[in-house]
Design a protein around this nucleic acid. Structure first.
Lengths: 155, 155
DNA sequence: TATTGTTATACTCTATAACTATA
DNA sequence: TATAGTTATAGAGTATAACAATA
């Protein structure tokens, strides 16, 4: 008498798997005393050294006030430095310290482990195939590579 | 001088696409004055009529206190009925009303539209291929079909 | 004593708005 | 006047704990 739950589609599976992947990645970087947003910040600063906090907030879709407290933490741990811009003394230019760069290296190997573990059930060919399909899907929705757009822009 | 962001892997793409899909689905069911958790509740009640609120909370990974307020809403709108169990008068047996069943039908067509729209960039064959790969991935992580496990059980 | 549903409380988190210093 | 960074405050949302009814 109890009906079955309807077959799961791609969209729902993406939500389910995405949440699961985010959770497991969070646990991994948690072992390095980092949150996923902080990882995103380190990555972004590495990619664009000298970035301002406002720009960082804009790129990552987070509130400037939140950037402050996260950077406070990262700076206090010697991973990031704030230096006043000489052109506009209101802004801080963010850069990674040597330790920050080293930690980013660890993060990348953690991410690689995460990727391998998560896709363990797939063959190398299948993994590559899945990657291709997901990239095309992401492209079709204008999702920028490597960035979490917040929930703000709904299109 | 500015380095590139590293190539995006499957795991990260799943997070990105999952968030995007969840957001868009939320907007669609929002037009029916429903939240995604409420949709999950309607689906679950349809699949297992007579379910108790506790059982529902357990299945969906949400707090019992939250189930109360959501069911309050759904009952007030004539979509769900609470009837005292004759065997154990502490529990309410949840069932869909005729209207609730009708609305669930609408939800399913909305979900179908969502699926088609979201995968628009893929051919039918690619869509099927992606579905297969994602299902196998979900299976390998013991993600139950059609259910959002909360963030509770991390394994 | 344990459990279902419910309500109330406390807590966290987020977003908004003020404040300073520079421009 | 406007903007970067910061701080403080208010609001939403969450989880936790207390409560009445039934077992």
């Amino acid at each position: 008498m109890a009906a079955e739950l309807p077959k799961t589609g791609v969209a729902f599976l993406l939500v389910q798997l995405g949440k699961h992947a985010a959770m497991k990645f969070g646990a991994r970087v948690g072992a390095l005393d980092l949150t996923p947003p902080q990882v995103g910040m380190l990555r972004m600063i590495a990619a664009q050294p000298g970035l301002s906090q406002q720009a960082l907030a804009g790129r990552l879709g987070m509130l400037p006030s939140k950037v402050v407290s996260f950077i406070d933490d990262l700076e206090g741990r010697g991973l990031v430095t704030r230096t006043r811009s000489s052109r506009d003394r209101r802004v801080y230019e963010l850069t990674l310290t040597t330790e920050g760069t080293e930690l980013l290296g660890e993060i990348q190997s953690v991410a690689a482990e995460h990727e391998a573990d998560f896709c363990q059930a797939l063959s190398a060919a299948e993994h590559a195939q899945l990657l291709d399909l997901l990239r095309r899907l992401a492209d079709s929705h204008d999702l920028p590579p490597g960035i979490h757009p917040g929930y703000r822009d709904i299109r």
